[in-house]
Each structure stands twice: as structure tokens, then as C-alpha cells.
């Protein structure tokens, strides 16, 4: 079973917590110790300083670390900070970037069509997944986004276990929404989500370095589901989303 973390951050945070680590080297050390083989990473600077600077720095940092895969922070095009849809996608593809991450709340834009429609349509047409922190959106917004763009793979990261009623409704009423496991630590939650919605709706995530990756590995390894389902959650689902061959 190969573990592929869908939710990890590189770089310096404005407010680091004790135990925080920021370099690609430290990330590889931490995930290796935890038994994680690969990670999809985004850059903290892209969220907190400047998307373009952060994205560029991310590519520089992961060079020489083949088990770290880049995820770019994206914005709508209206201000000219980023190319409009097709141009944005061409840029991602040219840089070998297979995933995107959005911070609409922190970066003051909306996932609604009038703000992000061009961006989301372009990602949908290119089947490039969008990773969205739970703290950056709402369940209503995530639902509307998935309904409007059913071909866009959306991964909701950091969904708290306490919101099980809302999260179950999202999973039931959409087909393209997945959850990362980093904060969805609900008792027997992996088992129940697999039984009701299928293992393809869960992606292994750690929220490293905010969280220690090792306990999240255990959550999947010890889940009361089949080995096939564990393998899907651990990494296969993400590899498929990113278009990487096994």
C-alpha cells in the first residue's frame, strides 16, 4: 500500500506552531518517517504573501524531490494577476502542475460563477482537480460549486468531524466532491463513508506540517475496510485524479 498525501504545505507561515517545519527536505524526512511515499504540496507563501511568488518558489523548492508534487494556488482572472481560464491551464500544464488549490476567503474572491466561473470552467474542461480548505469556503458554497461544475474534481480538505451531517449531505448530493482524511477523524468515519458513498470519495491527507503525518497513516491502515479500499484511499484515488499511472 503506497501512501500519497493530498494535503501538505511547504514554506514559512506567518504564525508557525511549535513543531512546524518548512523545507522540502524536512517534509520528505517527516513523511518518510510516517510511512508516506509521496505528497502533493502547495506553498504557504502562495496563500499568505503572493500566489505567483509562492507558486514559483514551490517549483524551485521541490526540484530534486521526485516524491513531492506541486499544487498551484489559483485566482480568478479579472484583475489580470493570472491569465484567464485556458491560459491558466496552459501555464499549469507547461509547468507540470496537475492540481490547484484555492483560498477564496483569505484572498477575497468568490467561488460563485460571476467571480470564478471562467477559472472553474477551464479547470473542469482540463479535469484538473481543485483542492479547497474547509476554512476557505462553506458547505453551501461547496455544494453550489460541485453542482455547477460536475466534471470538476473537488477535494474538500480539513472538514471537521463535527460537521458529519453536512459532510454526508455533500457526499450524497454531489458526485464530484471528495474529502481528505486529515481532520475528518470521525469515529468509524472511514468505514461509514466507504459503505455509504464508496472509497473513491476519500483521499488520504495529513495537513503536514500543521499536523504530524504518522497518526493519519494509522487511521487508514487500521480502518475496518478492505485492503482494496485502503489502497484507494491511501493513494490510488489521488493518483487517478492527478492522471499519474500506478
Amino acid at each position: 500500500m503506497r501512501f500519497f498525501d493530498c494535503n501538505a504545505t511547504l514554506g514559512r507561515l506567518a504564525v508557525p506552531l511549535p513543531g512546524y517545519f518548512e523545507s522540502a527536505e524536512a517534509m520528505v524526512r517527516a513523511i518518510t518517517r510516517a510511512g508516506v511515499d509521496e505528497a502533493l504540496v502547495h506553498q504557504a507563501l502562495a496563500k499568505e504573501y503572493d500566489p505567483e511568488t509562492g507558486n514559483r518558489k514551490l517549483l524551485e523548492e521541490i526540484e530534486g524531490f521526485p516524491n513531492l508534487h506541486p499544487s498551484f494556488c489559483v485566482l480568478p482572472h479579472h484583475t489580470g494577476e493570472t491569465p484567464a481560464g485556458p491560459g491558466l491551464v496552459a501555464g499549469l500544464q507547461a509547468a507540470g502542475v496537475r492540481a490547484t488549490r484555492a483560498f477564496p476567503r483569505s484572498q477575497n474572491w468568490s467561488l460563485a460563477e460571476w467571480s470564478a466561473g471562467v477559472l472553474l470552467t477551464a479547470l473542469e474542461e482540463a479535469s484538473i482537480p481543485l483542492f479547497l480548505d474547509f476554512a476557505e469556503t462553506s458547505c453551501d458554497e461547496a455544494y453550489a460549486l460541485c453542482e455547477r461544475h460536475p466534471g470538476l474534481p473537488v477535494v474538500l480538505c480539513g472538514a471537521p468531524f463535527r460537521l458529519s451531517r453536512l459532510v454526508y449531505a455533500l457526499l450524497a448530493e454531489t458526485t464530484n466532491l471528495r474529502l481528505d482524511t486529515s481532520s475528518f477523524q470521525l469515529f468509524a468515519g472511514i468505514e461509514d463513508v466507504c459503505a455509504r458513498f464508496g472509497a473513491e470519495r476519500l483521499l488520504f491527507g495529513t495537513a503536514a506540517p500543521h499536523f504530524d503525518p504518522a497518526p493519519s497513516v494509522m487511521a487508514v491502515r487500521y480502518a475496518g475496510v478492505s485492503e482494496e479500499e485502503k489502497t484507494m484511499i491511501a493513494g490510488e484515488n489521488l493518483r487517478k485524479l492527478l492522471g499519474l499511472t500506478s
Binding site: A34, L186, F187, D212, A214, A219
Partner: peptide, 16 residues
């Protein structure tokens, strides 16, 4: 805090 939380990652905190 089970069954608020799964006990598995909680054990993992100590194990690792």
C-alpha cells in the same frame, strides 16, 4: 475522546 474522534490517530500520536 472516542467516539467523538476515532481512537486510531490518537494512539498514533503516542506511538510515533
Amino acid at each position: 475522546d472516542a467516539p467523538f474522534l476515532s481512537p486510531v490517530p490518537q494512539v498514533g500520536k503516542v506511538v510515533f
